[in-house]
Amino acid sequence: MAARTEVAPAPDAFRRAVQELMSASWRPELVVDEMPAPQRISPFAAAVTAEVVVGGEEIGSGRLVLLHDPAGNAAWEGTFRCVTFSRADVDPEMVTDPLLARVGWSWLLDALAAHGAEYGAPSGTVTSVASESFGGMAEEEPRAEIEVRASWTPQLVAGTGLSAHLAAWAELLCTTAGLPPLPAGVVPMPSRRHPPSRSPRGR
Rank of each mutant, 00 (worst) to 15 (best):
M1Q: 11
A2G: 11
E6L: 15
A8G: 08
A10R: 02
A10H: 00
D12Q: 05
D12S: 12
A13R: 00
A13F: 02
F14A: 00
E20L: 01
S23Y: 01
S23E: 05
P28D: 04
L30D: 04
L30M: 08
M35Y: 03
I41Y: 07
A45Y: 05
A47T: 09
E57D: 10
E57W: 02
E58R: 15
I59H: 09
G62I: 09
G62A: 05
D69P: 08
W76S: 10
G78P: 00
T79P: 09
R87C: 14
P92C: 04
M94N: 12
M94V: 15
P98L: 06
P98C: 00
A101E: 14
L109H: 09
L109M: 14
D110R: 00
A111R: 07
A117N: 05
S123W: 04
G124V: 03
G124Y: 10
T125D: 15
T125G: 12
V126N: 06
T127M: 15
A130C: 02
A130N: 13
F134M: 11
M137Y: 10
M137T: 13
E141G: 05
R143L: 14
E147R: 10
V148Q: 04
T153D: 00
P154G: 00
H165T: 11
W169L: 12
L172N: 07
L172F: 01
P181R: 05
L182T: 14
P183F: 01
V186L: 06
V186C: 06
P190S: 05
P190T: 12
S191G: 15
R192S: 14
R193Y: 06
R193D: 13
H194K: 12
P196S: 15
R198L: 10
R198H: 11
G202W: 01
G202C: 07
R203P: 15
